[in-house]
C-alpha cells in the first residue's frame, strides 16, 4: 500500500532537552481520554498509557551520568505498520491531518496492531474501565469510554481538532486551515516547560514546520521507514543516537526525510 499524502500533517515536536520528566503530560492525557485509574499502575505491562515518558540513560556514572526523558505518544506514522494489518478496518489513516485513527466499537481485540507497532503505542484494554465511585462525574466529554477487549491509542486528542474546526466555522474561519495553536493536544497544552510543540509540519505558518527540520531533529526508528509524524529534538548526540538504532552498527540513520 502506498502511503497517503495529506495537505495538512499534524505533527508534534518534543524538545528532549526541555522535558523534565514531571509526568504532567501523562496525567493530562489520562484525564482528557478517560483512562480509569489503575491500582497497580507501575506495572507497565498491563497499564494503558497513551502517553508514556521513558527515561533514557547514557549509561555512565557519577558526574558523567546523564538522563533524558522521552514522552512517547502515538507516532501517527506516515506509513503505519498497524493500519494495514487490522482485519476489520478498526483503524485507518485517511483523514486530512494524517492522524491514525482507532474506533473502539469496531475493534475485535485481535492485538495484531500491537504486535505490529514497535513503539508500544497501542494498548489493549485488559479490564473494563471502572472508576472509583463518583469519579465518573469527572469524565471528560472528549473521548468515549472503551470496554475491555479493545485496543486503543493516542489520537493527538482528536476531539480537540474537531472542536477547533467547529470554532473556526463559528467564527467564519477556514476549518481546513487552522492557525497555529488553534488545535493543541492536552499534553502539549499542559507541559510546564513547553517541551511539546504541536502544529502542521507542512505549514510554514506553524512553529513546528521549522522545528521539525532543525539540525538536531530526529524521529524514532527512522530506518524502519514508518515515517512518524512525531519529531524529537536534542542537542545531545547520545540522545539522538538512542532514538534510532544505529548505535549498534555505528552507521548513521537513513535519509532523514522519508517520503
Amino acid at each position: 500500500m502506498k502511503a497517503k499524502e495529506f495537505k495538512v500533517t499534524w505533527g508534534m515536536v518534543v524538545d528532549l532537552d526541555k522535558c523534565t520528566g514531571c509526568g504532567a503530560c501523562m496525567t493530562a492525557c489520562q484525564v482528557e481520554n478517560n483512562i480509569a485509574p489503575m491500582v497497580d499502575a507501575s506495572n507497565k505491562m498491563r497499564t494503558l498509557s497513551w502517553m508514556l515518558v521513558y527515561e533514557l540513560s547514557n549509561k555512565k556514572s557519577g558526574a558523567e551520568a546523564e538522563v533524558a526523558y522521552l514522552p512517547r505518544p502515538c507516532m501517527q506514522c506516515g506509513n503505519p505498520a498497524c493500519v494495514p494489518v487490522c482485519p476489520v478496518i478498526a483503524t485507518d489513516k485517511n483523514e486530512e491531518g494524517g492522524i491514525v485513527s482507532q474506533i473502539y466499537p469496531r475493534c475485535i481485540g485481535c492485538r495484531y496492531c500491537m504486535a505490529a507497532c514497535p513503539y508500544h503505542a497501542r494498548y489493549f484494554n485488559w479490564e473494563d474501565p471502572v472508576f472509583p465511585k463518583g469519579m465518573e462525574k469527572a469524565l471528560s466529554p472528549s473521548t468515549s469510554t472503551r470496554p475491555r477487549g479493545v485496543v486503543e491509542k493516542c489520537n493527538f486528542c482528536h476531539t480537540r481538532f474537531m472542536q477547533a474546526k467547529d470554532k473556526a466555522r463559528q467564527e467564519g474561519g477556514n476549518p481546513e486551515s487552522l492557525p497555529d495553536g488553534a488545535y493543541m493536544p492536552a499534553c502539549a497544552e499542559i507541559c510546564p516547560t513547553g517541551a511539546i510543540s504541536f502544529g502542521d509540519v507542512k505549514n510554514k505558518e506553524h512553529k513546528v514546520f521549522e522545528l521539525a527540520q532543525g539540525k538536531d531533529a530526529f524521529r524514532l526508528l527512522e530506518k524502519l521507514g514508518l515515517n512518524p509524524q512525531v519529531y524529537y529534538v536534542s542537542k545531545r548526540e547520545w540522545v539522538r543516537k538512542l532514538g534510532d538504532n544505529y548505535a549498534a552498527t555505528g552507521k548513521p540513520g537513513a535519509a532523514k526525510k522519508h517520503s
Binding site: 482485519p87 476489520v88 475493534c107 475485535i108 481485540g109 485481535c110 475491555r148 477487549g149
Partner: peptide, 11 residues
C-alpha cells in the same frame, strides 16, 4: 484470543 468475541463476525 480476541478481546470481543461477540464481534468476531466483523471479520
Amino acid at each position: 484470543d480476541i478481546g470481543q468475541p461477540i464481534r468476531a463476525w466483523f471479520g
